[in-house]
Each structure stands twice: as C-alpha cells, then as structure tokens.
Design a protein around this nucleic acid. Structure first.
Lengths: 131, 131
DNA sequence: CTCTGTGCAAAAGATTTGCAAGGTG
DNA sequence: CACCTTGCAAATCTTTTGCACAGAG
C-alpha cells in the first residue's frame, strides 16, 4: 500500500526525517511534525512511515525498543549505544558483504544488508573515560 | 539482575533454546518449556531470557516483530526472510568488522557486531523460482 | 467526482512489573 | 532461614486497525 498522493502530512513527515541524523522514533517524529501540521495523528505518522519504508525512501532500524527511522538510505553501519540508547552513523567501507554472503550461501536470495555495532556513543564513551 | 539460582524453570528455558536453531521468540519458548515445567509463566520466561542475554549466554535478535533468541553466541550472520519471517544462520567469514569499525571511528567504543541480511530463506527462494 | 489518506479511538501485541507465596542454597 | 525467583494479573508501551469524513488528482 504505497501512498500515491502527496499530502501535507506526508510531505511534513519526510521533511522532518530528512532534517535530522538522530534516527528518531515515531513518537518524536509525531511531536516534530505537529509543529507544521498540528492536526496530524500518530496513526498517520505510522502509516506514512510504513509507506516510506516500503518505497525504500526510509530505513527502519529495529533496536529492541521503539523502531527508529533513517532517511539516509545508502548502506552504512550504525552504532547502538548501550548506555543512552542513541543510534549514530558509523563510517566503514563495507567490503561487498552482500555479494560475499550471497556467494557463500547458495539457496538463499539476499536483497539487503544491515551492519550494526553495539557499544558506547562518543558522548558516553567520553563520560566513561572521565569517571 | 543476573540470576544466581539454577531453578527448574531456568534450566528448562536454556535447554529448549539450546535444542533448536530456529531462533524462536518468547511465546514459542514458553509453549515448549511448558511441556517440561507446566506451571511456568510467560513472565518468568521473559525474566529468564533477559538474564541469559545479560550474562551473554543468549543473543537477542530484533527483527521488527517479536524478539527472537539464539543460544549460539559465536558471532555469525543471520538472514531475516522477508517472506515467511524465518531467521536462518548464514556462513560468512567476518573480516574483523569490529576491529575495522573501531579503527575507523575513534571516539566511540565498540563492544559488539551484528551482521544481518534480508532476503528469502531457502524454502521461500525455491518457491519463488517455481512460480 | 472518485478513491486514497486522515483523525480518532479502540484494539492488538509484546514485554514489564508489583506483590504475595514458593523454593534454593 | 534469608532472600532470590516464581506465578498471576494488571499495567505499560508500541504499533495496528475500523470507520466515517476530508481532500488530492
């Protein structure tokens, strides 16, 4: 069920998502979008996010808590901070992981990769050094 | 709050988890464990799984639906089947991803890696060829 | 005009938690 | 016997959904 009409709501969700690199969840996006479209409902935010994910314009990150969304879709690794819950982008040349995995696992059909690290984000890492 | 006492419940949960490679969720584990310990409650299953994860004896996999658990903890990639929801183990030599990511991202402190692929599991891939 | 998208509120699903009773070390 | 662990049920949190109305094309 991809969305076919460019509504005010949909444009606002996309803009909010493209304006941040904080990988927000639906509740945060909802609060932000309300500043532009006060009448929007949380249900619409969820429906819009689902549609954007299905269209491939947004990535859904499953962290264990609420799903977080990322409008930057070229493959790049993430770090989930085990201390504060932040999700931060990492830099790493991915050595053709998808192709290698496909070659070494005949029988399956791989369409996407997700590389995720766990640890401490810059802020929490600095704090843990200080203490 | 790691568990300190080896109760009947805890032993049963661990055994069920170690007896399968299907990466089950809490509800499935609950049904299986009830065969051995009929009085166990779902809440206890969750508490036990939490404790096992914190001890590092079990891995929690966040798929978007219910959390799935894996008692095989040496790092290996997973494939999430986008068609049937199965989680299957893949084979792939991980080229020191953690070390490389740590080297290229000073400031963060990386403690774990998670490599996940999306696509079709062997069964669903075969079906899609047939049709 | 038509049919998709929205708002609202209720529902569904997964996981957590308070409390009194039970069982391990 | 102390105190961790359990069972139960209620609570919480996140996400989904039914329905009547609104609005984009």
């Amino acid at each position: 069920m991809p969305m076919r009409r460019m509504t005010r709501q949909r444009k606002a969700v996309l803009e909010v998502l493209q304006s941040t690199r904080s990988h927000p969840d639906a509740a945060w996006i909802y609060q932000e979008v309300k500043k532009k479209v006060p009448s929007i409902s949380l249900g619409t935010v969820y429906r819009t996010l689902d549609a954007l994910v299905k269209e491939g314009r947004v990535l859904a990150l499953h962290t264990g808590g609420a799903t977080r969304y990322d409008a930057f879709t070229d493959p790049h690794p993430h770090l989930f901070c085990t201390s504060c819950g932040a999700v931060v982008d990492l830099t790493l040349e991915l050595p053709h992981l998808l192709e290698k995995a496909q070659a070494q696992n005949p029988g399956v059909e791989i369409t996407g990769v997700r590389l995720t690290f766990e640890g401490l984000c810059p802020r929490c890492a600095a704090q843990s050094l200080a203490s």
